[in-house]
Design a protein around this nucleic acid. Structure first.
Length: 223
DNA sequence: CCCTGATTCGC
DNA sequence: GCGAATCAGG
C-alpha cells in the first residue's frame, strides 16, 4: 500500500484529531502503526501529546551503534547548550466553531476556560453563556455505505448548514446522497442532542473496540 | 503484559 | 521514502 495524496490527507487529519497511530493505521488499512508514525514524522507532523514523552529522554540509545567497546572519553559535560526554559505552551486554542475573526491576543490575561462540569462522555460542559465547542471537535469516523437513505430528497446540504442545525454527516462526502443530519442543534454544540451523544464520547483507550455504541453507519471500513 | 510515540537504519 | 525493529515510557 502506498501513500497516496488521499491517504496522506487522511493521516494528517486523524493525526491532528488526536487519534493514535494504531487507530489511524487501522482506519487507513494496509499500513502498520509504525508506518503511520514514520510517515507522520516524515510529513513534519510532530509529536502531539505522547504518553511516553513525559520525562526528558536525551535519546541516548543508538540501537545499532554497538557501543560495547566504546572508549569514548568525552562525556561532554558542559558542551551541550544550556537549554533555555522553553516557554510553556499557551492555552491550546481550539478554533473549533464558527466564531470568525475576534483576534484579541489579550496579552495580559489569558483566562483559563471556566469549566463548570464534566459531561457524561468526559467532555467539558461550560456555562450556557460562554459555551464553545469542547476540546476536540467531534471525531466522526470513516463511514461505510451501509444503507442509502430513501428520504434524501429533502436532505440537508452543505449550503444549508447554520449554527442552528446539526452538522452530523450522513453518508460520505462526494457521494450523491451525502448530506447532514439537519436536526436542531444542542445549543452550543455543532450537533443535535442525539449526535452530541455520539460525538463527544471520551476516546476509548483501545481495548474497547466500539461494538456497543454503534457508529453512525457501520463503523470502520473493513478490509 | 498491554499500550503509546520516537528513532534508527536497511531496504 | 518507506517501515520493521527497537527503544522508552505509561
Amino acid at each position: 500500500m502506498s501513500w497516496t495524496d488521499e491517504r496522506i490527507e487522511q493521516l494528517k487529519g486523524m493525526w491532528e484529531k488526536g487519534m493514535t497511530a494504531s487507530q489511524i493505521a487501522d482506519e487507513l488499512g494496509g499500513v502498520s502503526r509504525n508506518a503511520v508514525i514514520g510517515k507522520a514524522h516524515r510529513l513534519g507532523l510532530q509529536s502531539r501529546p505522547s504518553p511516553v514523552k513525559a520525562t526528558d529522554v536525551p535519546r541516548k540509545k543508538p540501537v545499532t551503534a554497538r557501543p560495547e567497546a566504546e572508549s569514548d572519553t568525552t562525556p561532554e559535560p558542559a558542551a551541550a547548550a544550556p537549554v533555555a526554559p522553553s516557554a510553556p505552551e499557551p492555552a491550546h486554542a481550539a478554533p473549533a466553531e464558527p466564531a470568525p475573526a475576534l483576534d484579541a491576543p489579550a496579552p495580559t490575561a489569558p483566562p483559563a476556560p471556566r469549566i463548570v462540569s464534566v459531561g457524561p462522555g468526559g467532555f467539558l460542559r461550560q456555562g450556557p453563556g460562554d459555551q464553545q465547542a469542547p476540546i476536540p471537535p467531534a471525531p466522526p469516523r470513516r463511514l461505510v455505505p451501509a444503507k442509502p437513505s430513501p428520504e434524501i430528497a429533502d436532505k440537508t446540504s452543505l449550503l444549508d448548514l447554520t449554527e442552528k442545525i446539526c452538522k452530523w454527516p450522513m453518508g460520505h462526502p462526494g457521494e450523491p446522497d451525502f448530506h447532514f443530519c439537519g436536526e436542531k442543534v444542542n445549543p452550543g454544540f455543532p450537533y443535535c442532542v442525539e449526535h452530541c451523544g455520539r460525538a463527544y464520547q471520551a476516546q476509548l483507550p483501545r481495548g474497547t473496540r466500539r461494538p456497543p455504541p454503534p457508529l453512525p453507519f457501520g463503523g470502520p471500513r473493513v478490509r
